[in-house]
Simulated scan of single mutants.
Amino acid sequence: MANSIAKGLLLSAALMLLAACNDANTRPQIDIEGKTMGTFYSVKVSGTLTESKQQLQQEIDALLEQANDDISTYRPDSVLSRFNQNTTAEPQPIPRGMADIILTAQRIGRDTGGAMDITVGPLVNLWGFGPDKRAVKVPSQQQIDAARQHIGLQHLKLLSDSRGEWLQKDLPEMYVDLSTLGEGYGVDQLVRLMARKGITNYLVSVGGAVSSRGVNGQNKPWRVAIQKPTDRENAVQALVDLQGYGISTAGSYRNYFEQDGQRYSHVIDPVTGRPITHKLVSVTVIAPTALEADGWDTGLMVLGTEKALKLAEEKGLAVYLISKTDDGFSAVMTPQFKAFLVQ
């Protein structure tokens, strides 16, 4: 799994926002950019605003700052960090948004047979991809087995009562990492902000998660490019029109370390406790929400091409998979994904 709160920071995200191709704007458009969750965000709005660009950016920054205060593992005083630091089995209060992320993670974790596991943090940290960023070396099997004693979704419970939402663990050293869903959550928060303000033409992104609705400054639908799994930033694999949906991409081809000629990806398989070794290098998912897409892309990434495609077809998911071959790369998609392709 991606260890950072933002896959964009790790450069595993493979989405690029397509800029307008001509200067004949038919509607005003504003672009707002900034930093959050260890990566970058972008908000593009077309049409006339009822407030200034500066006022809108202040609200965006405050919204994303709150998300960081809730779920960042890089902030020792965040709600999630305080939960991880707690070694008791007493339920801990959490905000509603964080509960939504946990609930989504638990469901996708079950559906993927544990391939998407938000408790995999000890293994991510052990392999040097966590917030500590310690010197990278291949851990011993003994170290891996020891870390695996502290993970497992079955040891994490989400509770709700009249006072609010609560999170409980029965393993004292359990370390929950919501980074694999953080960008999608941030995007959905921005989408809700747009709705509250009556903004109907926008494209918002946080790292590798994107959502859009309506048209751009040229009065044309927003389009998003899926990047080829190479180091070239503008190598486009496919174009999609999101039609109000969210999209997220997970990849294994940029964040890694090498030792003795062997490459070790940041994507950790919770079952083996080791980085993945299969040929699947990129997974793009389109879903009703960016959070949903962000959760599925990581789980499918861990499974590998054949298992990921089979599960996506069973669940009716819109998925685009890119695999490494002897001759380069090959791509396969589900029928649901084809509906979003720009021919």
Rank of each mutant, 00 (worst) to 15 (best):
E33W: 13
V302H: 06
E33Y: 14
A235H: 11
T26S: 14
S12L: 07
L126R: 10
R82A: 03
E65N: 08
Y245V: 02
R254K: 13
K44G: 09
D269T: 05
S212N: 14
P122T: 07
A238N: 06
S162P: 00
D231E: 10
F129I: 10
V281R: 12
K7G: 15
E233T: 11
A339Q: 11
V215C: 05
F340H: 03
S265G: 10
K35F: 07
N234G: 05
L17R: 15
Y245C: 11
V138I: 08
F129N: 06
D269W: 04
A235S: 05
A287F: 04
T180M: 15
Q54I: 09
S140M: 00
K310F: 13
W166C: 03
E314F: 02
D132E: 12
S78K: 01
A250P: 04
A19N: 15
Q154T: 02
S211L: 01
I30T: 05
T272R: 00
E33I: 12
L15E: 04
K338L: 13
A135S: 00
Q54S: 14
Q227A: 15
S160I: 03
I94M: 06
K137C: 01
A105T: 07
Y175D: 12
A13W: 11
R196I: 00
D70E: 13
T87L: 13
G261C: 09
D241G: 00
D100Q: 10
L239K: 07
G38N: 01
D297E: 10
I94K: 09
G198M: 11
V281D: 05
V136A: 12
S211E: 04
T50M: 08
L18C: 14
R134V: 03
P76R: 15
E33L: 04
V79K: 00
G244M: 12
F340S: 08
L190M: 01
E292S: 00
W296Q: 02
R254T: 15
V138G: 02
L311W: 04
D241Q: 08
D326N: 14
V120S: 13
S4M: 02
G299L: 12
L9S: 08
V187F: 10
L49M: 02
E65G: 09
A115T: 06
Y41A: 03
G47Q: 04
T73Q: 09
L18G: 13
A209P: 12
V240L: 00
P91I: 06
D161H: 05
E183D: 14
T50A: 13
Q343L: 09
V124K: 06
R213A: 15
I151P: 11
D177Y: 06
L9P: 01
Q92P: 00
G109V: 12
R192T: 09
A293Q: 05
L123N: 08
